[in-house]
Design a protein around this nucleic acid. Sequence first.
DNA 1: TTTTGAGTTGTTCGA
DNA 2: GTCGAACAACTCAAA
Length: 472
Amino acid sequence: MSRGLPDAGCGYLSGMAPATSTAVVWFRRDLRVGDQPTFLAAKERADRALALFVLDPRLLEPAGPRRTAFLYRCLRALDEQLGGRLLVVKGDPADVVPRIAQAVGAASVHVAADFGPYGRERDEAVEKALGDVELVRSGSPYLTEPGTITKSDGTPYKVFTPFSKEWTKRVRDAAPADTDATTLTWMDPSDKDGGPRAVKVPDDPKLDAELPEAGEQAARESWEAFVDEHLTDYDDTRDRPDKPGTSRMSVHLKYGTVHPRTLLADAGGDGKGATSYRNELCFRDFYGHVLWWFPRSARENFDPKFDSIPLDSGKKADEKFAAWQEGRTGFPAIDAAMRQLQGEAWMHNRMRMAVASFLVKDLHLPWWWGARHFMNLLVDGDLPSNQHGWQWAAGTGTDAAPYFRVFNPVTQGERFDPQGDYVRRWVPELAEIEGKKVHQPWKLPDPPSDYPEPIVDHKAERNEALARFNAL
DNA sequence: TTTTGAGTTGTTCGA
DNA sequence: GTCGAACAACTCAAA
């Protein structure tokens, strides 16, 4: 294997100087030019690169309008960074990627490894279809590639804390790759000879939510502002949905407009805030690992012993679910959160836990109903973190599930939204109620008539949830 | 193999 | 109002 030299048969014309060698850089969930190991790998093998994105119907359909629009915006931003040289095509990657590689005479296609259930399968199919053209995987969306952290006996961790100890050792030396748009010479995609036809990034689907700004530049600015203003106090302020104390990087990590290496590099200190932030990055890796080892846990209880817990169903259950979805449960903090999800395609993490606990423990509904709703509406919706976050709340996932982990929907509101600002922002029916009284409008002498009474008695449903758990 | 210590983010109750 | 203990038993991880 002669790295860095044009392969015979795809660049030489007899008697002439070698033609330019080309590599394909196939972007997927890494829509950035900074900190891109794929660029370095492509540069080793070729003089120029073709930047490619494939609109894959199998991924786009389940993404829903919000994530689809966000993706399109990221693609437009990336195309601009690449001087208008991003080739966008539509189709099944196993079909179009090999045809493009052939059309530009590429000997290698460069990707960041994908570890999702569909992504793994797709990449194997592409690799097979590529034949002699090599699919080169460099890096991944994670700090530690799923599957690479195991216990000393080679089996996977099922508990976060011991995983995090090993993870901390592993990521100590992680450093961002030094790349930018000029690392590679980008081929003009219109020079391609045949192959699938280029398409424009489609117009955004119709939206009913305001999305965060897309693209690498937006990610970087947002991150730098967070580091300057909130990282030091992150340990405290991350729990406050009424304050802008979180980094909002989830959506950028989802689309790879930033890599966690870059975040880790800036959050490497010993302070409480930085330590907490690293813990969140570690959770993302942990759940990436868990889903890689246990792909069925995306749909089923991680621990099958919980399969026998009785769940509600039928018309009443459907009605409760609708009330939860629409933010009319009568619990202000829960309703504010569900409306935030509806309105800005995002929900504060503290409230994700609270509404999940409410759905599972107060309404006794399946966690996967809630997980699906989240995936439908979240712009940052990412399968491993979403599903396992839900399983954590339901007590069916990794880690010990203390039977007493039942959130009190009122206490959570009063503790983390102490002045009620979050509730008033998202529940206009309660906008006139001052201070923390807003968390229990039913106690007011004259409660607002257009806001519902609580749909359940929390104390009773808490006991019911405990009883169902204890019956195991 | 056996043993030991521990397990993301909580709530309630009684002193 | 604050604070510590209780809330089950079990599985996981490591020694």
